[in-house]
Structure formats: structure tokens, C-alpha cells
């Protein structure tokens, strides 16, 4: 949005990273490390707290997913209204160009590591508002990186739950502690 890009945020805390590097170099250390990593990833995936970014129709189905019938709380997914407490952001509904900077700002306010779920056709690519339209953003992946796309207009609450399960799979497979090896 702005011309000046913000400085890159250090995503890893240096002392922890040093400890991890030392542990990784020890004999048998990587086995311990992978167990620790598994535990951390398991706990992160089992308590995803999403920021409910309800914009339009999909927000109603998102609310229905937390109501009695589908009850997302039983999977540890508890809705948050503030980005500071959230792990992932569910963008539900069409996003206008007027709203796009706000989506971006709330995404920037979320603490790392953070994920984005794009719910519905409109958030994914503009959907029914793709052609002949001057006001709708053609997909929120133009402003924030999206991890899981849930298509549907609007998706059933089950489809949203399936998207969250897909995100949990992704989190569980992440090398969370080990530094990415430069290619």
C-alpha cells in the first residue's frame, strides 16, 4: 500500500535459534529437535484462534460454523475479534478496494506465525464480481498471502471446517524451529 516497504520482521528469536543450532549439531540432537518440533506444531495446530474478518455473506456461514450445529469450538478454534490474539485470519466475503488497506493492516498487526484462509469465491478471486466491476478487489491474495482457499458461494460451514483442517495439516508439517536451508 505504502511506497516504503517496512523493514523485514525477524521471525525467530536469536537465543532460541542459537540453542536450536547447537542442539542440531550434537549427535542425536536432531531426533530430540524433531520431537520438540512435533510437540510445538501439534499444540499450535490444535488451538488455532482465528481473527474473524467477516465482510459479507460468507460471514453468516462462518457464524453458523461456530453455532450449535457445527460447533467449531470443539476443535480448539475459538473466534477472536482482535488481531493481537489471533493465529490466523479468516477473510469471509468480498473485499472492496476501500477495505483492502484495512485487511492488510490487520494482517500486519497479527503476531507471527500467521496464516490466512480465504473463504468463498469473492475473497478467492472476486467471484461473481470479477467482471464489469470497479469496486471489488479481485481476490484478497493481492494484499495478503493466502494459505488455504475455500471455494463456494458461500461455502457450507463444513467446507470451512475442512479448510481449517487443511490448515492444521499444513502447520503440522512445518519445520518450525529449524532454519530454512538457503537453496
Amino acid at each position: 500500500m505504502s511506497a516504503q516497504a517496512p523493514p523485514p520482521i525477524p521471525t525467530r528469536i536469536a537465543p532460541i535459534q542459537t540453542a536450536v543450532d547447537i542442539l542440531d549439531s550434537l549427535p542425536g540432537g536432531s531426533v530430540v529437535l524433531s520431537k520438540v518440533e512435533y510437540l510445538l506444531n501439534w499444540s499450535r495446530a490444535a488451538s488455532l484462534w482465528p481473527l474473524t474478518f467477516g465482510l459479507a455473506c460468507c460471514a453468516i456461514e462462518m457464524m453458523a460454523a461456530w453455532a450449535g450445529r457445527f460447533d467449531l469450538d470443539r476443535m480448539g478454534v475459538i473466534p477472536r475479534a482482535t488481531p493481537r490474539q489471533a493465529d490466523c485470519m479468516i477473510v469471509a466475503g468480498r473485499c472492496t478496494i476501500k477495505m483492502a488497506p484495512i485487511v492488510r493492516r490487520l494482517w500486519e498487526q497479527m503476531p507471527e506465525p500467521k496464516y490466512v484462509i480465504s473463504m468463498g469465491s469473492c475473497a478467492t478471486c472476486g467471484g461473481p464480481f470479477y467482471y464489469d466491476n470497479y469496486s471489488i478487489l479481485k481476490g484478497i491474495d493481492q494484499v495478503v498471502p493466502v494459505d488455504v482457499y475455500v471455494p463456494g458461494c458461500p461455502p457450507r460451514p463444513e467446507a470451512l471446517i475442512e479448510g481449517l483442517l487443511k490448515l492444521q495439516e499444513k502447520i503440522k508439517a512445518e519445520p518450525f524451529l529449524r532454519r530454512a536451508v538457503p537453496a
Binding site: A56, G93, R94, T96, K98, P128, F129, D132, N133, I136
Partner: peptide
Amino acid sequence: GYLHSSVEKMMEYRTYLQNVALADRGMDY
């Protein structure tokens, strides 16, 4: 204006049948 989706304009470029699908989404959802 944070959810302005220009439905009235879009309806001018769609047939009467297609507008039924648009009226569902663009107006009161």
C-alpha cells in the same frame, strides 16, 4: 461504502435471468 459492490451498474451488463443470481449476492445477503 466499505462494501460497495456496484450491483446497479453490473445489472446493466447482465441478462434478466443472470441478474437474479446477482440480486442474491449484491443486495441484502
